[in-house]
Amino acid sequence: MRRFFLIAPPFAWLLLLFLVPFVIVVKISLSDAALAIPPYVPKFSWAEGIGTYFSQLDFENFTFLTEDDLYWKAYLSSLKIATVSTILTLLVGYPMAYGMARASSEWRPTLMMLVILPFWTSFLIRVYAWMGILSNEGFLNQFLLWTGIIDTPLIILNTNTAVYIGIVYTYLPFMILPIYSALERLDGSLIEAAEDLGCSRLTAFWLVTIPLSKTGIIAGCFLVFIPTLGEFVIPSLLGGSNSLMIGKVLWEEFFSNRDWPVASAVAVILLLILIIPIVLFQRNQQKQQEAEQ
């Protein structure tokens, strides 16, 4: 009985504020838009019964999404931006995690703190910091003009390049931390053994270090990829009108066009796309936990 009182509050809270809202999103994605408050016509009423409700379903918001090429272009471009920036983050993050794991033990807590500090700093501020750097008269252009590398300022702000830089910058700690914790556990004598057996340092790295840090790499990649796919702040501050991302489309559909049924349909499809990486991520985490025990 006492256990019931421990389980019930968080359980009920999550049911009411997490699960029920999703059911509502799915329901509204099947409704019609209307000029009313709230701006949709609820198609379901208990009086008519469930039978008529299902017979009247027409998925027209979803067919609308396939007809207007804005939406599938936005999904594709979100997938592309998320994939490319995950790879870029891995390329920047892995050497850093590797360097941290190889640093002397007096240095490690300090390095760790230096990685965690940006993670606690406001996301919005970190994205904002790049606006002053990447703009036409920003610091990057000033610096490059001063050194004479370029003659005319580069246009970076309001392009996809700026979005990539923003994502790599803000999500870097999510990539470094799981890889670092995998590398830190790695037994150094294995690499020495590989080298003794005639491997060059590079082959030893490729054949021993990389495979043994695989779970960390996978975890880091998903931790970057999954939230990036629905990212809103970075494309709207650093990207231009042509950096399409689905999070931004959903936001505008909701706040500017006030078309709630279409916004809900956009959310439902985004969720369906995310199910695959989320399941893979969970499986990777479970495998890692089992390996630790």
Partner: peptide
């Protein structure tokens, strides 16, 4: 229960926000 604990960690914020508003 454990699904509901882990899902919000990876849920895009736009979806969480939209669904709560509709509720």
């Amino acid at each position: 229960f454990s699904g509901m604990i882990y899902a919000p960690l990876v849920m895009p914020e736009v979806i969480t926000g939209l669904s709560l508003l509709l509720l």
